[in-house]
């Protein structure tokens, strides 16, 4: 490999100033990852499921304990306090709390397990990175087939390859030739603008969805319509003007439209949302518990791996 090509390639892997070492790290990670996947594939079938069950359980146990175990600040508070409750806690769990409180490596909101949180999350990101290549491969495969077979979407599919090549070229140019203009054009000039155009469609869709939602077809729809009208009026100056003849203070001031609108938002709406959130939290807890203890059934959870 000529020096001319080797330098840009070395810089291609660059994440820190010491690029040679980083390239080595990446190569090592790829090798270790590949080896791990190969070993997992070669593992006899009867061991695969217990392996996955064990890994899931250990990972779940780590996150549960990290959340449930008290942080350093709590240990310090409990040990320093003279209340009967805290004295009992100190007597019962002093063996655990004292080393935690005296550990200088820990921040006040950390316990021992918190120290590894970042590393554990990095492992998850690395696993995710391996699958990204599969996603890209699927895109290439899908659009390549459209282009080769000249299907209905062939023209649009060709733009995928055009866009991919253009972005790689622009990125490469910015990174190694110090010409940022093309990359800026591709991102700020094209990508962000297209993104914003797509986002702006929501404004039109909201109108058509609201029209259908606000058609009074039932008693519930009427309540929704009335509540929506109140909230909308409370947000605009005309709404405030409508009830401006009511006093600013006293009992009657509660009937001013801006206050009624705020009341709808802050009281019934917030209560309903919290109710839904309670249900969601319990549902998430139950699903998480099933997955953690490998009790989940159906779809891919029961199949031989």
């Amino acid at each position: 490999m000529s020096t001319g090509l080797a330098l840009p390639l070395g810089a291609f892997f660059q994440a820190q100033p010491n690029h040679k070492l980083n390239a080595l790290y990446i190569a090592g990670c790829l090798f270790a990852g590949g080896l791990f996947i190969a070993l997992l594939t070669q593992t006899p079938k009867r061991f695969r499921k217990p392996l996955i069950v064990s890994a899931t359980f250990i990972a779940g146990l780590y996150f549960s304990l990290e959340f449930l175990l008290p942080p350093k600040a709590t240990a310090e508070t409990v040990l320093a306090s003279h209340s009967p409750w805290n004295r009992t806690m100190s007597a019962l769990f002093g063996w655990f709390l004292r080393p935690l409180a005296s550990n200088s490596r820990l921040a006040p909101d950390e316990n021992w397990l918190s120290l590894y949180l970042e590393n554990v999350n990095t492992v998850w990101q690395v696993i995710g990175a391996f699958t990204f290549a599969l996603g890209l491969w699927n895109l290439i495969h899908l659009h390549f087939r459209n282009v080769v077979h000249v299907t209905k979407g062939a023209f649009a599919s060709s733009f995928f390859f055009l866009g991919l090549a253009f972005m790689i070229f622009a990125g490469y140019l910015k990174q190694f030739s110090g010409i940022p203009d093309l990359f800026a054009f591709a991102t700020s000039g094209l990508f962000f603008q297209l993104d914003a155009a797509m986002f702006s469609l929501i404004a039109f869709f909201i109108i058509s969805a609201a029209y259908r939602a606000f058609r009074i077809r039932s008693f519930e729809a009427s309540i929704m319509m009335a509540a929506a009208l109140l909230v909308m009026l409370s947000q605009i100056p005309v709404g405030a003007w409508l009830t401006s003849w009511l006093p600013d203070h006293g009992l009657l001031s509660n009937l001013r439209i801006e206050r009624v609108g705020q009341w709808v938002l802050r009281q019934p709406n917030a209560a309903a949302q919290r109710g839904i959130n309670f249900g969601l939290a319990v549902g998430m807890l139950a699903t998480g518990l099933r997955i953690w203890l490998s009790l989940e059934r159906g779809s891919y959870f029961e199949r031989d791996v």
Binding site: G283, T287, E296
Partner: peptide, 25 residues
């Protein structure tokens, strides 16, 4: 709406473990 989302797999599969979890919820 809400926790009905998490009831999906239990409701559709009628698997005892999942139904038990749903009632537990």
């Amino acid at each position: 709406i809400g926790d009905e989302y998490y009831a999906g797999s239990a409701y559709l599969s009628k698997e005892p473990t999942l139904l038990g979890s749903l009632v537990g919820q």
